[in-house]
Amino acid sequence: MALCAHMVCGAGAASPWVIRHSQLIQSGRVLDVACGHGRNLRPLLGSDLELFGVDRDPAGFAELNLAGVRTITLDLEQEMDEVLPFEDASFSALIVCNYLHRPLFPRLLKLLAPGGVMIYETFAVGNEEFGKPSRAEFLLKEGELLQLIASDPTVAMEVIAYESGYVDVPKPAQIQRICARRQGGAKQLNRLA
């Protein structure tokens, strides 16, 4: 099981990393992988974006569905034959926060449309000093997120922003986070806050 029970950004608050880079999502479909109760989709509600959330636990789906988010209950580790049942290049943005299942990365990259943005944030080696998650399968190795973004030679990604290090808020943690755009499509400005 690769779903992390402890949040980098708190149980109810959207990730500041996701909020900062969500301004790069101009239109289209957005998928939040391991969305939980949808904390990272909430800031996008009311936009013209088509929002999707997938998680193995549908506990938070009723409220998301009422808000117009399409949800899918799927255990991303156990149901590898049905991993993210969407067509390739069908999303303008992917959000992944506090979740790591390395075999899923090639599929995630293929889901991004040309010009699409991936916003990813999760725990890294060194987090075991601060609590959970502490097992190696839940922790990115040094620079691993950069390697995973470049792991499929058929999907060229441009890194917009990358950070690796220690954070204090909402609790001490060691993390890596990246925002990257799939190359291709119309040239877009990467407006940074």
Rank of each mutant, 00 (worst) to 15 (best):
R56E: 04
L100Q: 13
M80P: 09
A67D: 10
P153H: 10
I95C: 08
N65M: 13
Y120N: 00
Y162S: 14
L140S: 03
P43V: 09
R181F: 02
S134N: 11
L41I: 01
N98F: 03
E144K: 12
R29C: 06
V155D: 08
L139H: 03
V155F: 08
I72K: 04
Q176W: 03
K141E: 15
I72S: 03
L66H: 09
L139T: 05
Q176Y: 01
E158C: 11
F91V: 02
V169Q: 15
A136F: 06
V30Y: 09
E82L: 12
E121S: 06
I72V: 08
M80N: 14
L24G: 00
A180G: 05
Y166P: 01
V83K: 01
E142Q: 12
A180T: 02
A150K: 11
G126S: 09
E121A: 13
G116A: 07
I95M: 08
I119L: 00
R39K: 11
M157A: 11
G38F: 00
L76Y: 03
E128L: 08
L44C: 07
V54I: 08
T154N: 10
R135H: 14
G143V: 06
N65D: 14
T73S: 15
V159A: 07
M7V: 03
E50F: 03
V18E: 01
V167L: 03
A67F: 04
M1L: 12
E87G: 12
A62K: 14
E158W: 11
L24M: 05
G184Q: 10
F105A: 06
F91Q: 08
Q23V: 08
A173G: 06
K187V: 05
A186Q: 12
